[in-house]
Design a protein around this nucleic acid. Structure first.
Lengths: 164, 164
DNA sequence: CTTAGAACGTTGCACGGACACCTAAACAGC
DNA sequence: GCTGTTTAGGTGTCCGTGCAACGTTCTAAG
């Protein structure tokens, strides 16, 4: 952080209005790295063990938890942090593999449901232990239970309401 | 988490060996969402204000902090969580824009340094306030100082050593 | 009823990144 | 010295994603 410090943009103690302390900056960077690290590990494991990218796993999960195993495309896009176009292609792939199906919406002819098929549900069931084990070993095991509760409280403050 | 619960993979209280409590799972998901949210915000702001993608900003920062403003390609790739090929193209772009230069390594003819140019340093200086402001408003402001210290301690436990 | 506008999903395009493979250089052992 | 192995970096190719534009359908104003 030498250069930043040189310009007075980071400081040791008093964090100015725009400046950050070195600790604050370090926390942010560590968070970034940790997130990337865990995500990659998860993605790799899911891929080799079940041929399922993380994004696909997320979609299947969202559908499984939705009433009637179905969700409108737009709705789903918001939940998996994906643009609508991105979701379109992803659903294309999942449909090709028979894990989800598209169904028209009765009340709105514009709308489409993405529906989890039985094969999709089976695949999800098969992959979930891998996913959970990954989260546990890469993340939860490294924190105490008290810390987890604390993180939860902190995260609850962030406005993670909806996607842009 | 209905489906997961149905399969006994998540529980209310006692977290089994592979199973997770709903709270643990929720924490992980919130963390994911928060990280994506913040990252996108940052990327968008840097892009519109300074035409600088987040990855490029990271590279410039790493170079600025490195001794002599230079780093070996391989070394740099590890620090910015990028594959070597990915870094090659990114440096290509940055070089095209005159923000970094490539320099041969005297002691090892295979090696190349990525060197921050004056233009690159200027661009970084110009963009950094935006970056820091983003971290502050999207992240730090929503946490107390005590919490930041706590997060730091937690993150310190994670083995974020090196990239695969 | 007609029409302007918004909302839903898809498509063309370009970009950024990873993987596998390649060349050149350094190093190991004999 | 010569040869096999390892390391540094770059290239060919493919995949996934976002943005902008498009067609279709719903909704509201007149």
């Amino acid at each position: 952080m030498t250069l930043l410090r040189d310009e007075g943009l980071t400081t040791d103690r008093p964090a100015g209005p725009a400046g950050l302390t070195d600790e604050e900056l370090a926390v942010w960077r560590m968070l970034q790295r940790a997130q990337v690290h865990i995500t990659r590990h998860l993605e790799a494991e899911l891929l080799v063990a079940h041929g399922l990218p993380l994004a696909s796993y997320d979609v299947l999960t969202q559908l499984a938890e939705a009433p009637d195993r179905r969700l409108r495309m737009n709705d789903l896009a918001g939940r998996v942090l994906l643009s609508r176009s991105g979701l379109t292609r992803l659903i294309d792939r999942l449909q090709r593999d028979g894990l989800v199906a598209r169904e028209a919406c009765a009340s709105d002819a514009r709308g489409l449901f993405a529906v989890l098929t039985d094969r999709g549900a089976a695949r999800l069931t098969e992959a979930t232990p891998t996913y959970l084990r990954g989260i546990r070993s890469e993340f939860l095991d490294l924190l105490g239970p008290g810390e987890i509760r604390l993180v939860r409280e902190m995260l609850a403050k962030l406005p993670i309401t909806a996607a842009p």
